[in-house]
Nucleic acid binder design. Structure first.
Lengths: 210, 210
DNA sequence: GAATTAGTTGAACGATCGTACAACAAGCGC
DNA sequence: GCGCTTGTTGTACGATCGTTCAACTAATTC
């Protein structure tokens, strides 16, 4: 029995947009901004050239949507959990094997490069990072006040974020040298250095993805 | 008296190459890889379109030369100075106001994005960073052994480099929030947290460049 | 000052870029 | 099964991309 050839399969705008976003991330991960072209993204998504401009105002608008999806985890609400759990969640989430692979890191690098240049992207980035940072500062403040620690929460939050991002960078740019577990351990070691002792959630530990 | 118009002024290959490298850095700083085009670089350098391919094998070869120049400070020999001076030199040099401006940071970001993709660039990067890291590990080892500190030099070096790079990132992507002096102070604070006390060289402190 | 060397120009090329748009077709209500 | 909506296609367009190369000329040599 011969199934009649269907020229293409229709999907809802929401679903197709999501697929285009994923395809865009895949392209960014493969070759950075140079690979983020209409042709390559559409080929990756298995659709024709015209579809991106149908679902998005422009290629740049797609990039903003991609960034919005990639940073969604930063603004999740952790208010219900304890300060220590919040911090552990940030650290472990940042080095989660599922999202912390080199393809994703290349995508991050590419987008960071664009954040410095594009106004809309920069605005969204600062908004997301601000919320992320404030959650961290809040958790650190609660801990340091409860335990009478001489800790500058702003400075520590800044250092911890920098440490996480810097370890991402190192891990992404150097193929060898250390593992995800090393990186995570470095973060907890840093906090221990300023008398903030946090037990990492063992359940979150996993294997590295190449 | 009318001076005869001279169509162009000749320069040595070495000097022109240097100018093209500087122009390329300026373009990277202005708009990332998107602005790193033959047209824009030549316009920035005030030369005609054909000159880049005359002095460099390709645009990518120019990018490699740019990276080589930008990372030259990483492989300078600090062996003659004391371990503490070496570390202070790395930190202060990394946040030196002359090189630590947002334009240069945008250039760094753009190149980091390419390092993950281009083979030749990645090779050079790993080679430079390796030497940089080993110098740091060496200095930390000398200190920790002399003072009987329970310090994992590899881990601390990794953390310090990550901290520096992460603070670069934060400073570059967020227009406000903290200063160069804050960032440098964070690095010394981090080392103090693991009982390595270093006095920053006050002479190197300067004003931020926008 | 003629010949030679070598730095520079700018047009030309094919390839690829992002976008626009007319044509098409899949799914839906009826 | 007929319109209608709307997701999808693919061509076309002008702009810009990196590279090539013949021609030109400033500087040097003798």
């Amino acid at each position: 029995m011969v199934v009649k050839d269907i020229a293409y399969h229709r999907k809802t705008a929401r679903q197709r947009r999501s697929e285009l976003i994923d395809a865009g991330i895949a392209c960014l991960g493969r070759g950075g901004m140079s690979a983020f072209t209409i042709d390559q993204i559409c080929k990756q998504a298995g659709v024709s050239r015209g579809l991106i401009n149908h679902h998005f105002d422009s290629k740049e608008a797609l990039l903003v949507s991609i960034y919005a999806q990639m940073t969604e985890y930063l603004v999740r609400n952790h208010a219900a959990t304890s300060p220590r759990q919040q911090i552990a969640s940030f650290i472990d989430g940042s080095f989660d094997a599922a999202s912390f692979n080199k393809s994703n890191l290349r995508a991050w690098l590419a987008i960071w490069g664009q954040v410095a240049t594009h106004a809309e992207l920069k605005s969204l980035h600062q908004q997301r990072y601000q919320k992320y940072r404030l959650q961290l500062v809040g958790a650190l403040t609660v801990i340091s006040e409860a335990e009478q620690l001489a800790v500058d929460a702003d400075s520590v939050a800044r250092q911890l974020i920098a440490l996480i991002d810097g370890l991402w960078l190192e891990y992404c740019l150097h193929s060898d040298g250390f593992s995800l577990d090393d990186a995570r351990a470095d973060c907890y070691r840093f906090l221990r250095g300023i008398d903030i002792v946090i037990q990492p959630d063992q359940d979150l530990q996993g294997q590295m993805q190449p």
